[in-house]
């Protein structure tokens, strides 16, 4: 009989190393947080009125739809996939909603209908990706063409929305004090984020999402429902895009088939800057919120600056994307 002794206690050097390694996964999120704080501090130091609470709240108000869309994208990217269709689905949602409302349909019918439409589109893309093993990039590209094409077919012009419910939702302000308020969209987007974060952290579905991103083959051999989960994340992203589209139509009070061009890029950028690994398996929804805030803050600073032109937003976002992708690369390479 072999003498089985308890393994020697982990040497302290190894333990320290492990703590470092463990913290390394938080590096991107912490970097984003630090960036956000620095940017805010720079804003406060340089521009008058930047420290108003409403400046921060406006970032949420102006980006509520992006937050919802990016939340859906976070799920997809965590599995190691990508969803290029989100901007087009937002546009389709606003167009369909505006058209139906214009035709006199009740908001109580239109709202669930457009949400269902986005969800079904997502489901379809997920099914194609899973069953036919088409690359997510291509399947959602087709979805993007399809959604944008249908939207353009329905109406090429901007359609104003005058429905009572829609205008109420658009104009309703939740006030915390004089001049300090948020819109209903902000509440909805935060609820979505909270639910999403809960699902990711505390449900079997959420953990399976991470497992697939870590290694889909392993997940399959561990007996996890890989196919079902993969279809579900694209369905979820479809739903989030549709909901984002509804919020967008609140925000714009209109529907337009050319809305949200390039929103998929903003959503992906927010997710990446928020520290989610593009290869999947690591990151938090909280990080995505930070990512959206960074994008919003860049715009705010450029607006406050006055002399800087709007295109700097894109360049700065590109630079940040580069920095965070290289950072991710360094982090994953070293932890291997």
């Amino acid at each position: 009989m072999i003498d089985v002794t308890a393994p020697p206690g982990t040497p302290p050097a190894k333990a320290r190393n492990r703590v470092l390694k463990q913290n390394r996964r938080h590096v991107p999120v912490l970097a984003t947080l630090a960036l956000l704080i620095i940017m805010y501090a720079v804003g406060v130091a340089n521009y008058r009125g930047f420290s108003d609470t409403q400046v921060v709240l406006n970032i949420f108000v102006d980006n509520a739809f992006l937050l919802v869309v990016a939340a859906g994208m976070t799920f997809v990217i965590l599995t190691g996939g990508i969803d290029l269709s989100v901007g087009a689905v937002v546009a389709l949602t606003t167009t369909v909603a505006a058209t139906l409302l214009h035709a006199g349909w009740s908001a109580a019918v239109v709202l669930p209908l457009v949400l269902l439409m986005g969800t079904v589109l997502g489901l379809g893309m997920g099914a194609v990706i899973h069953f036919f093993q088409v690359e997510p990039f291509i399947a959602t590209l087709a979805g993007m063409f399809l959604a944008r094409g249908i939207a353009l077919l329905i109406n090429r012009n901007s359609i104003p929305i005058t429905d009572g419910f829609w205008t109420a939702m658009a104009e309703e302000r939740i006030r915390f004090g004089p001049g300090v308020f948020i819109s209903t969209s902000v509440v909805i987007s935060l609820v979505v984020v909270l639910i999403g974060a809960y699902v990711l952290a505390y449900t079997r579905f959420g953990r399976t999402v991470y497992a697939i991103g870590g290694s889909a083959d392993s997940a399959l051999l561990m007996g996890l429902p890989v196919g079902r989960t993969r279809i579900a994340v694209y369905t979820l992203s479809g739903f989030c895009s549709a909901l984002g589209g509804v919020l967008y139509s609140f925000y714009m009070s209109s529907g337009y088939s050319l809305n949200a061009q390039g929103m998929e890029l903003d959503a992906i950028a927010a997710v990446v800057i928020g520290g989610v690994l593009l290869t999947g398996g690591s990151g938090y929804l909280f990080g995505t919120v930070l990512g959206v805030l960074v994008l919003g803050l860049i715009q705010t600073i450029i607006t406050f600056q006055g002399t800087l032109s709007s295109w700097w937003t894109r360049i700065v976002v590109g630079v940040l994307l580069f920095a965070f992708i290289v950072l991710q690369r360094a982090v994953t390479r070293r932890s291997r």
Partner: peptide, 22 residues
């Protein structure tokens, strides 16, 4: 603008035909 729809269909059909699983 409806060419987008055609393109969507072309992409879908081509991808499916190229997909061994399909």
């Amino acid at each position: 603008e409806t060419t987008l729809l055609f393109k969507a269909i072309v992409v879908i059909v081509l991808c499916l035909v190229q997909s061994a699983a399909f």
